[in-house]
Nucleic acid binder design. Sequence first.
DNA 1: AATAGATCGTCACACTTGCAACTAATATCG
DNA 2: CGATATTAGTTGCAAGTGTGACGATCTATT
Lengths: 152, 152
Amino acid sequence: MENETTETPPLVLEDFIPYRLNKAAEAVSQRFASIYRERYGLTRPEWRTLATLGQFGVLTATAIGAHSSMHKTKVSRAVFALQKRRWLSRKRDDMDRRIENLELTPAGRKAYNELAKVAYQFETELLSHLGKRGENELKAGLAALEAYFGRT
Amino acid sequence: MENETTETPPLVLEDFIPYRLNKAAEAVSQRFASIYRERYGLTRPEWRTLATLGQFGVLTATAIGAHSSMHKTKVSRAVFALQKRRWLSRKRDDMDRRIENLELTPAGRKAYNELAKVAYQFETELLSHLGKRGENELKAGLAALEAYFGRT
DNA sequence: AATAGATCGTCACACTTGCAACTAATATCG
DNA sequence: CGATATTAGTTGCAAGTGTGACGATCTATT
């Protein structure tokens, strides 16, 4: 049985997955961003750069961008800002002198350690409100998306 | 048993929910945005405004912003752009002359109907790659997040 | 060894965004 | 009624962003 008319059904945004995904991500991001913004005056690209370096140790700007999906100019500016703060040191590579090896300074690592702890707390708090069931579903749903994008 | 050192464990970004949520949302958004950008030259705020009006019929700019979590200046500019395209008409409210009642023109509705159809196809295609299981988990996970944010 | 092509990071530029201030209109309260 | 506060929507400005071009360096081809 077909509909009488062939009108396109209106799109219901509250049910539309890309829209829901975005709203949820933005809501989470903003709450978390307000923490490192208020506490350290960090921007989002700066936090991401700090976190990526904190996790991996020594990286090039390109590698940071690749891992965290940031445009290279964004990384470049974040690196500059973190260097100005003396949280990060750059060192030309001897083998390939186009490359800069980036690394957190002790001060940078200290800030990173603090923020990493705060990040864990934030995540734990967030997940605790979803219930064990909701948490598992969210993680599984994200994993499914990641698996798809990973092979695309 | 405690760890020997009390070092904060480094944050593993690939496991960090806010980060994963953001990357997934951005990946989905960019793919979808490239469709309406290439096909109509629409920006993201313009598409959101079009979609919200398409779904609800007549709305004020403030209502659009509230529903789609957009800053009022963003809405204001998107409305202006859509009006310039003759996809949208504004009409001062007689009861409250601060308010503008916004509505899609026939041309705007036509574009909306086309885009709504494309949006459904996009969503269907996306979900088909997650498997029925992944789809359900994703939806349930989002619902859990929405329930939490809804009551916050 | 020389040329062409790719890669790394930066910069100038135009565009987008959010904040604060603004105008116009309505609502609230003494 | 009148003063003040609030709301709707726009705009100026400063900050953030991506694009494209660039110099410097490395790689590949001959």
